[in-house]
């Protein structure tokens, strides 16, 4: 279990993150969403033990990360631009990580190199961005991390590579209960693999949601009544958004769908439909509620 508790971090004069609390369950994939400069990378680097927070605690299984060799050897951070020592091939990098990470798995390393068709003799800085990122994944997964921290991992990758990498991550999560923290500025990039997401805006946490809950909890309902909408139809139901199209009322509501349906049915509507909602739509309505524009992460 990973916990950020009221974490604040300042850079010289600017506040990077303020009073952020996040909980990530073991074996889950957590998507940290936010536009550029929201403070995502700062949180990832705090969790990787690169930065120290000014306030609050960052813990993995109850232990602080910073300067803790044991914790750090069980996590791996891939930055937005993977970095390799100059003139190093993937084999060299592998040897280096092998000497530092206790759980290095050489077999896996060799297998991954083969399956990704990376030339072990070619210098890494000569590869394209996509291949460099794949190499970074190979190295990361060979250290058999319990926690994988990825900063914008899908940015600029083509769909095939994206799919390969996603399936690699999902495999490890399923097999070894690896925990993953992914940052992204785009919900669509990560919605299919994340269990839960948090939205960070200007250094503050706006919301944290379990995606499955979110999907099963938010509904779009079309209803129509003979003589206009009676009072009290939505009593006890959280309405995120409402609009009328002619006599049809479209509402976005939260709550258990069966309960809502039975409640609305009591008023004998002439039309009652539950329509599917995309995650994107859910977020738009959610955020409208909070009062922020989140177009940026949804484009």
């Amino acid at each position: 279990m990973i916990k950020f508790e009221q974490v604040s971090k300042k850079f010289e004069d600017a506040e990077a993150v303020e009073n952020v609390s996040i909980t990530i369950n073991k074996g889950s994939i957590y998507g940290l969403l936010g536009s550029n400069g929201a403070g995502k990378t700062t949180l990832l680097k705090l969790l990787s033990g690169i930065y120290t927070q000014d306030k609050g605690t960052v813990t993995v299984d109850g232990e602080p990360v910073y300067e803790q060799k044991k914790i750090k050897s069980s996590l791996f951070f891939i930055p937005d631009h993977p970095f390799f020592f100059s003139q190093y091939t993937i084999t060299h990098m592998g040897q280096f990580y092998k000497s530092v990470y206790q759980n290095w798995n050489e077999n896996r390393f060799q297998q991954l190199i083969k399956s990704f068709e990376i030339d072990p003799k070619k210098k890494l800085h000569k590869y394209s961005k996509g291949l460099q990122r794949q190499a970074a994944f190979i190295l990361a997964l060979s250290t058999m991390p319990d926690l994988l921290i990825l900063d914008e991992p899908m940015d600029g990758l083509d769909p095939v590579v994206r799919k390969n990498i996603k399936s690699l991550i999902i495999d490890d999560v399923a097999e070894r209960e690896m925990t993953v923290l992914i940052s992204s500025h785009n919900l669509r990039e990560v919605e299919d693999i994340c269990d839960s997401v948090g939205i960070l805006h200007k250094g503050k946490m706006l919301m944290e949601k379990d995606l499955d809950d979110l999907k099963s909890d938010t509904h779009k309902i079309q209803i129509a009544f003979k003589n206009g909408v009676p009072d009290g139809v939505f009593n006890g139901v959280r309405v995120l958004h409402q609009e009328e199209r002619g006599s049809v009322l479209i509402s976005i509501v939260r709550g258990d769908s069966d309960k809502i349906l039975s409640k609305v049915n009591e008023f004998k509507p002439i039309l009652l439909d539950i329509l599917p909602l995309t995650l994107e739509e859910i977020f738009i309505y959610e955020m409208e509620d909070v009062g922020y524009a989140i177009k940026n992460i949804l484009d």
Binding site: G49, I50, K69, I71, K72, F76, F77, P79, V100
Partner: peptide
């Protein structure tokens, strides 16, 4: 960043 994310004090 790389050196300080390594499990080395």
């Amino acid at each position: 960043d790389l050196f300080h994310s390594l499990p080395i004090k």
